[in-house]
Write a protein that binds this DNA or RNA. Sequence first.
RNA 1: CGGGACGUGGCGCAGAUGGGUAGCGCACUGGACUGGGGGUCCAGUGGUCGGAGGUUCAAAUCCUCUCGUCCCGACCA
Length: 476
Amino acid sequence: MADFLTKRSTDYSQWYTDVVLKAELADYSPVKGCMVIRPYGYAIWENMQAILNKKFKETGHQNAYFPLFIPKSFLEKEAEHVEGFAPETAVVTHGGGKELDEPLIVRPTSETIMYAMYSKWIRSYRDLPVLINQWANIVRWEMRTRLFLRTTEFLWQEGHTVHATYDEAQEETLKILSIYKNFAEQYLAIPVIQGKKSDAERFAGAFYTYAIEAMMGDKKALQAGTSHNLGQKFAKAFDVKFQDQNGQWQFAWQTSWGVSTRLIGALIMVHGDDNGLFFPPLIAPIQIVIVPIWQTDQQKNDTLTLANTLKNEILKEFIVHIDNREQITPGFKFNEWEMKGVPIRLELGPKDLAQNQVTIATRFKDKKSPCPLDNLKTTIETLVVNIQKALFERAKNFMKENTFTVDNYKDFLAANEKHGGFFLVHWCGKTQCEETIKTESKATIRCIPLDTVPEKGKCIVCSEASNERVLVAKAY
RNA sequence: CGGGACGUGGCGCAGAUGGGUAGCGCACUGGACUGGGGGUCCAGUGGUCGGAGGUUCAAAUCCUCUCGUCCCGACCA
């Protein structure tokens, strides 16, 4: 038992902070609200980037880069947008020792600066669609921050596309949403619910906002990715228009979508336990750690030689780390790597060498088992698949077990208070009822699930007619 | 911005009520023994006690102000 970690069941948020710091994923920085992502944590982000880049490029998107600074007037061009973001922007008023003629906003998101450029680049329907993504840092001046989940500066990707028709834009919006869903489920082993946001939760300036919502280990919801159909709102504000086949000028239809380093927080909270982190093999910074065990110099030499052979030859397609630190006992290393979430550990000592085998242990902490070197590669391949699947199934069951269908408002309030979780309830669609839920339960309407089945019912608050159930939960 | 807690070697803390030469654990450095689930012993390094002002012969300790951090709310990916 990792007794230097706060137990997850004792204090979930303290556990979260402890594990992020102890596992060296990140650290607090001298700048308030900003974090330092350490190498072990950044490696996860790099893995995410690699997978998403592949998916984006497969669907025709290209990467580009736009400026960090946005002229203040740009942000003000779209009314809802400025209202939504103005309170949380950082503003640069001086440069080179002189006050600027126009203050610059440090981007909280890049719609405005990108669309100002799009307006310049797009003339004809032949220029469409524009499918651009950028990897960037952004700044939102948050009141309260938490490592990875909410920091003043964070890293993300933001895709910004332009289309000739509404249907095309809507198709793109949902296509990206499903890329996010598949990414979360297949790589992060995090089951998610795809859905549409209510007006109150909609992105400032969007026509529709869609999101994937995931359940964390404390049963709270985390928005893990968003995809917006922007309609023509920004096109009109930034004059993004094109001539169609008939020579008519038309405003373009746009989308924007993003996921952030917050996903790392989701990984931690979905799969971690009292022993620390547990990374799914397909996203883990280290998939396999080899702990060599020796007593004599000869044994040290032999085990390290074999360890290197495993890393560089037999298991070269996996991310392998050899922990060859001296003066640290094997037992310490076992615990440390478990805390750091490495899914598979190979123990390699004199007894294994004598038998031409390695000892395999998994982060599930189930029984260790010996494996002959001849079978090692296939055994590991199977193990990776199985662990990945087991984590997903475990998380899926957890979400299922903690999702409740409720029809009575008092029952909902009581259940939400008592054990929390996801609640599927009828809602009439009025912002007023949404407000009531939020005020009285501290839970919010996370989304209107896409796969919801039409069902006649009565709004849980006002009893007016409702045609479908929405997802309600406390959220990060 | 409201409520709470807290700033003392790198980290975690004691010392403060009742002022009197800054201490403990971990980590770190050197060495020896160890090594299959968080090792043992020996010897060491390291602190203007968050900052400023005040009271006093004397302040980590008392007083005033200030800065910062974390937790809980309002805002948010």
